[in-house]
């Protein structure tokens, strides 16, 4: 009798080929609900590739990725519902205001109405709701991306260098959001250099071979 399927995310012997080369091979990882997994490793060791693989943007060239024991590629739509991915750039259209971005995001991810406003306030962007994105600074743009992350009802957060360009207060806001998400049983996998994680964060170092 197969042991009870491990809850949350589990990758076994994952391999990733990208740009004609094998970025990583035979990589195992597991993240149970409430976990925070921090990816460490120099540039080019595959942190971003792994995050895109976990998000389902990139198919593993080998190995198996499972969620609650069930292979992820069996129900890609369900996996897309449970993933919120923040990449390097912030997906902002210069001529649209923050509020318009949030409204579109809300429709795209089926976000309940009030969550958007709360998310903007959580990152101190409430006052900037009516401002077109082209006026925002690098830090404000990053916070706009994180606001949409927080608003989305996704169990698995995949963050690629989320603290780039953030000031101390925003890093603090992100840390609180991560803690809240973990407390509610969510999982966070983040590639970052900063120690914003606080307590009980597990680390996976890539390219250590």
């Amino acid at each position: 009798m197969e042991s009870t399927p491990t809850a949350g995310l589990e990758g076994r012997a994952l391999a990733c080929r990208r740009g004609g080369r094998t970025v990583f091979r035979a990589l195992d990882l597991a993240a149970a609900p409430g976990d925070l997994l921090v990816l460490r490793g120099a540039n080019g060791t595959g942190k971003s590739s792994l995050l895109r693989l976990l998000a389902g943007l990139l198919a593993p060239s080998d190995g198996r990725l499972a969620w609650d024991g069930e292979a992820v590629d069996e129900d890609p739509a369900a996996h897309r519902r449970r993933v919120a991915y923040v990449g390097h750039n912030d997906a902002l259209k210069p001529t649209l205001t923050l509020a318009e971005h949030m409204r579109f995001h809300a429709a795209l991810r089926a976000v309940p109405g009030d969550a958007c406003a709360a998310a903007l306030d959580a990152f101190g962007l409430g006052a900037l709701a009516g401002v077109p994105a082209r006026f925002l600074s690098q830090g404000q743009r990053r916070r706009a991306a994180l606001a949409r992350l927080v608003a989305a009802p996704a169990a698995l957060w995949l963050l690629d260098e989320p603290t780039n360009g953030l000031d101390a207060a925003s890093v603090e806001a992100l840390a609180r959001a991560v803690a809240r998400h973990r407390a509610s049983g969510g999982i966070v996998v983040a590639a970052t250099h900063l120690e914003f994680a606080g307590a009980s964060a597990r680390t996976l170092t890539l390219g250590a071979a």
Partner: peptide, 16 residues
């Protein structure tokens, strides 16, 4: 394709 892979490997080797 094999040459391409070897070149990548060498670059990665240097980086390591």
């Amino acid at each position: 394709r094999r040459l391409e892979a070897l070149r990548h490997a060498r670059v990665a080797g240097e980086a390591a």
